Simulated scan of single mutants.
Amino acid sequence: MRRVRDFVRAHGGGVVATNSGTGCPESAWVNLTALDDGRLVFGTNERSRKYGNLLADRRVSLVVVSGDGQEFQLEGEAAVLEGSAARDAGELLEARHPGATGKASTRLVAVRPHWARFVDVAAEPPVREDLTL
């Protein structure tokens, strides 16, 4: 998990896909950070489709890229954070992405990955490695 955590902290954003319930996934760019325990955190507006999708189905996938040929593909379960957990995660997200948590309608979501794949197309030969989390 440390490898995923450090990569997310270094690159700070990715695409999250949620189940829209219509047969088509809904994808969106999100600002990310990672907690010490490896959960990935992003904020979302409680009126967004993404938030409604997460309430209906906690399963998500994420892709985080470096811009230099490396990426992590992840699958996991999302949970909306409340109370002190939300406050603590919000401080981390705000430190990485100033303004990310400034609206009253922002809800913080933590994703606990259960599967990950690391890809590095800049390496010779290219690397593709599934990780046990």
Rank of each mutant, 00 (worst) to 15 (best):
V63I: 15
V64I: 12
V64Q: 06
V65R: 02
V65P: 00
V65L: 05
S66L: 09
G67C: 07
G67S: 11
G67A: 12
D68R: 13
G69T: 02
G69Y: 15
Q70N: 02
Q70P: 01
Q70A: 15
E71Y: 07
E71C: 14
Q73H: 09
Q73G: 14
Q73M: 13
Q73S: 15
L74K: 00
L74S: 10
E75M: 04
E75C: 03
G76Y: 09
G76W: 14
E77F: 05
E77L: 10
A78Y: 08
A78G: 05
A78M: 05
A78P: 12
A79L: 04
V80L: 11
V80A: 11
L81V: 09
L81P: 11
L81T: 10
L81S: 06
L81Y: 01
L81I: 07
E82K: 07
E82S: 07
E82N: 03
S84Y: 00
A85G: 00
A85P: 01
A86Q: 15
A86C: 06
A86V: 01
A86G: 04
R87M: 01
R87C: 00
R87T: 03
R87S: 03
D88P: 03
D88G: 00
D88N: 13
D88W: 05
D88Q: 14
D88L: 15
A89Q: 09
A89K: 04
A89F: 03
A89P: 10
G90V: 08
G90T: 09
G90Y: 09
G90N: 11
E91R: 15
E91D: 08
L92P: 03
L93C: 09
L93I: 07
L93Y: 14
E94G: 04
E94L: 05
E94Y: 02
E94S: 06
A95I: 00
A95T: 07
A95V: 06
A95Q: 10
H97M: 08
H97L: 11
P98D: 06
P98R: 11
P98K: 13
P98S: 03
P98W: 05
